[in-house]
């Protein structure tokens, strides 16, 4: 009994120490974004355009770690670089992160994009009007603080995802290669049909994300984020897309002990 008590006490003390609160904040982000896209399976023409960014999150930081959850959405309208056709892009994302402090101003850990839904709608197209990449990614993450700046770097390690369009048709490449195509199979079109998800690692599936945030005041900060993704489910026919965003963050509440 005494042993059990000591173990419970040990964990309780550890947890209290781990979460010895320094700062916690609940915030909203709002700003603008710029995105680019190229799918070589269908064309080398790049699409670029501007749009809006919205985010909502909770962040907790103490002497030992930073952890938080973040929900963000980016909506842009991209135009083809060589003609006038456009595509609307929607990218909602739910993230969770935990980074351990290894120096006073340096944290390393992981970010998990629990759900990353990247969806495009091409104006004027038929079967190829909808394109989406749905999935989840585990990232190696680092944060470095310098004065009022906070720099972030994420490197995508593993992605578990489904691309909606294959080499020559609007169905996942593995659906077509495995001979699974069937109009009575509703799962083929579902973004959440895990049967057709692929697990990919770097370098075949390359993802990187950087960020820089400047603390303007206790309530306000301004941040820039960049996200790049490049992968190819058909060899030599890569999909590349990137998003830049610049946003203002307002801490709805921020408590420091």
């Amino acid at each position: 009994m005494k042993k059990t008590y000591l173990i419970v006490l040990f964990f309780a003390v550890s947890l209290v120490q781990l979460y010895a609160q320094k700062t916690s904040s609940f915030y909203v982000d709002i700003g603008g974004g710029f995105s680019s896209f190229q799918d070589v399976k269908y064309s080398n023409v790049r699409y670029n355009g501007f749009g809006g960014v919205f985010g909502l999150g909770y962040l907790k930081e103490n002497e030992k770690a930073i952890w938080g959850v973040n929900l963000q959405g980016i909506v842009t309208t991209e135009k083809a670089a060589t003609h006038d056709n456009t595509v609307s892009t929607y990218n909602p994302m739910l993230q969770a992160k935990y980074l351990h402090r290894i120096k006073e101003n340096l944290f390393v850990g992981a970010t998990w994009d629990v759900l990353d839904l990247y969806a495009k709608s091409f104006d004027g197209l038929g079967n190829n009007s909808a394109y989406n990449v749905t999935g989840s990614t585990l990232w190696a993450s680092a944060i470095y603080d310098y004065k009022k700046f906070r720099f972030g770097l994420d490197l995508g390690l593993i992605s578990y995802f489904k691309e909606s369009t294959g080499f020559a048709f609007s169905a996942s490449q593995n659906v077509l290669e495995n001979g699974d195509f069937d109009y009575q199979n509703d799962k083929i079109d579902s973004p959440f049909a895990f049967k057709y998800y692929e697990l990919r690692t770097i370098p075949r599936h390359f993802q990187v994300r950087t960020s820089i945030r400047y603390q303007l005041s206790n309530r306000f900060s301004v941040g820039y984020k960049w996200h790049l993704r490049k992968f190819s489910e058909v060899k030599k026919y890569p999909v590349t897309y990137g998003t830049h965003s610049l946003s203002i963050r307002y801490n709805i509440f921020k408590r420091t002990k």
Partner: peptide
């Protein structure tokens, strides 16, 4: 057959 579609570089 099933159909794919897209745009050429000139639109």
């Amino acid at each position: 057959g099933s159909v794919a579609d897209g745009y050429l570089a000139n639109g």
